[in-house]
Design a protein around this nucleic acid. Structure first.
Lengths: 338, 338
DNA sequence: TGCTGGCACTCGGCTGCGGTGAGTGCCAAG
DNA sequence: CTTGGCACTCACCGCAGCCGAGTGCCAGCA
């Protein structure tokens, strides 16, 4: 068990290192923080912290830097989420208001988050399966061609082309549209498969095939992992990393380009509350020297998707967490209004 | 006027420099290319080319590298677009087929282009104003709240919320929907403003305000500069630039994040045919050491949007141009089918 | 037992220096 | 106009030496 002061030393090391980006030594620590003890004592504490694996030296005769484990302890025990200041809150709200559609909301959110945290921002679109059906529209584009449009209560719109096995009349189409909507409108997408199961049976034999085709397209659209989308931004902030970085930045950019990787990353995070994954805690190799701070957001109580930032393990955790949480909250509000 | 051989020397310099990324000297040139003359002669030619501003030396006693002007001459006079090989064509087609919607098409295109050229790819969504109206849908979400959905023949879907001044009945809504579609369906979006001008007059006085509100939202959606969207990818390829790069890569990433900048960039390109902008020819400062190869694409004869790549001025122009052209062609096909 | 000042030691980073070689410009001869 | 020869330039590389921040250890003190 670490003494109170040693924890304090760890906190000081994290704070200084995050600020200066340079290994911090015992002397500098005592000067910048009122620890009330001499450098020699701090050195002893540092040795103990290193023994426990919370800090490390890049090389002998250099200062210490926190390890992933050190950051973990810092985040869990030593740091409090830093709330946004009122002006910041107002700025967030102003920035997000005036979005004309969901793409705009997500786009603005990404930019906002990237700017606030000066890191790479990732925002997931509201998941279809966790949203509620606002409307299902069917449009006849050609005798045997139907366009299926899904609209969620979060403003997300998905469309699919359906090639029908046989031509489908306008009246049948209107019929299907009406029946479909009366069953699913206002219900959760996750329940849709169950709700439309027996729908083909209500139709004439000749239309039944077409109805099934339409429905199966609908269901395919809802398959998780296909329906997830996201937007990223602030990649230019990666250049602030280290100065060594072709090597550092490359794998990160590559990982960020892989939507699958990012979706998995966000998927691994807790559904409620904030999640911080530090360094090697991230399964993906390219992200092993980055930390991911993510949180769910939603129009009501429940999260419909996640958002977060990706940055160096050496990041300002309290500030980042504060920004991420605040943005998530406001996005939720905006979505609820639309 | 430059002699035939001097042009040949310039071509050789460009090719070698693009290949090796290192300044090329007179001896190496004669060895790698059958110019039929001695290094000394090549030196004279180089001096002449430098005099004319086509090449430059990074420092005395180093080889030459092409200047922007040199690349310009190379692209205009010395290089032929390199056609894709049949296997490559097949790969492109395979990769693009199976896209389920427009987002998917654009997403696949970006990834494909980035992979083929090993550079940053930029793909603009089909412009609304240059597309044709497939359908306009109006949905009543609340008594005084309407959702407007625009669907283009290229598969693009835009939606907007409209808050009506007074509640709007279902029948009036159906009426508006029918009138609207009969006027604009199959017409070009650019003509829509003219076509709906007098539409409010067909309605009762009490609905007229609402109809106007809906229409003005519709028109706002079509305002150019707001309606343009794009997707980028392959930013990880930027790390292949130079090794000096925090400085090099930073402004490029920043420029790429600014959709406005990119849209302007693409907007400046010719509407038909391929456009190559080299180095300082790009107005934007951050992109002054990059080249942009872009081309319009469309489902029919006319371009509905543009796509292209951004890379170092030191790029393989013939290959890049070939890839860009081929991809644009196939995307056009895919869009025409949907 | 824990804190402190003192001290020798380590080692990465900076600086200065000469050698090396690719590449150049110029010139006189073919 | 081309070519071989030649002197010159200068970036790059490796090496040696210095500097200083930072460490670990130890003996003394509360």
């Amino acid at each position: 068990m670490l003494s109170e002061r040693r924890l304090e030393v760890l906190r000081a090391i994290v704070q200084d290192y995050v600020g200066t980006e340079e290994p911090v030594g015992s002397k500098a620590l005592t000067e910048r923080h009122k620890l009330g003890v001499s450098p020699a004592t701090v050195r002893n504490d540092m040795a103990a912290l290193e023994e426990e694996g919370y800090i490390a030296q890049p090389h002998t005769s250099a200062g210490r830097i926190p390890t992933d484990k050190g950051y973990r302890l810092f985040v869990d025990k030593l740091a409090a989420v830093k709330p946004m200041t009122p002006p910041e809150r107002r700025a967030i709200q102003n920035f997000l208001e005036g979005a004309v559609d969901l793409d705009d909301v997500v786009g603005r959110t990404v930019r906002l988050l990237a700017q606030l945290t000066r890191q790479v921002a990732v925002v997931q679109y509201p998941s279809l399966t966790r949203s509620t059906v606002r409307h299902v529209e069917l449009l006849s584009l050609a005798p045997a061609r139907v366009m299926l449009v899904l609209i969620t209560d979060t403003g997300r719109v998905e469309q699919r082309m359906v090639d029908c096995p046989v031509p489908f009349g306008e009246t049948s189409l209107a019929d299907l549209r009406a029946r479909l909507n009366s069953r699913v409108a206002g219900r959760r997408f996750a329940d849709v498969p169950r709700l439309v199961e027996d729908l083909p049976e209500a139709f004439d034999l000749e239309d039944r095939g077409t109805v099934s085709t339409v429905l199966s397209t609908l269901l395919e659209t809802l398959v998780e992992e296909n329906e997830e989308r996201l937007m990223i931004g602030g990649t230019a902030n990666l250049t602030r990393f280290g100065h060594d970085f072709p090597l550092t930045i490359r794998p990160v950019l590559e990982a960020l380009e892989e939507q699958v990787v990012l979706l998995k990353l966000l998927g691994e995070a807790k559904d409620s509350g904030m999640t911080v994954r530090i360094g090697h805690e991230n399964a993906h190799e390219g992200l092993s020297s980055t930390s991911v701070v993510s949180v769910g957001y939603g129009s009501g109580g429940e999260a419909v998707a996640k958002l977060g930032v990706v940055g160096p393990t050496r990041m300002d955790y309290p500030g980042t967490m504060g920004a991420v949480r605040a943005v998530a909250r406001y996005v939720g509000q905006i979505l609820a209004e639309s």
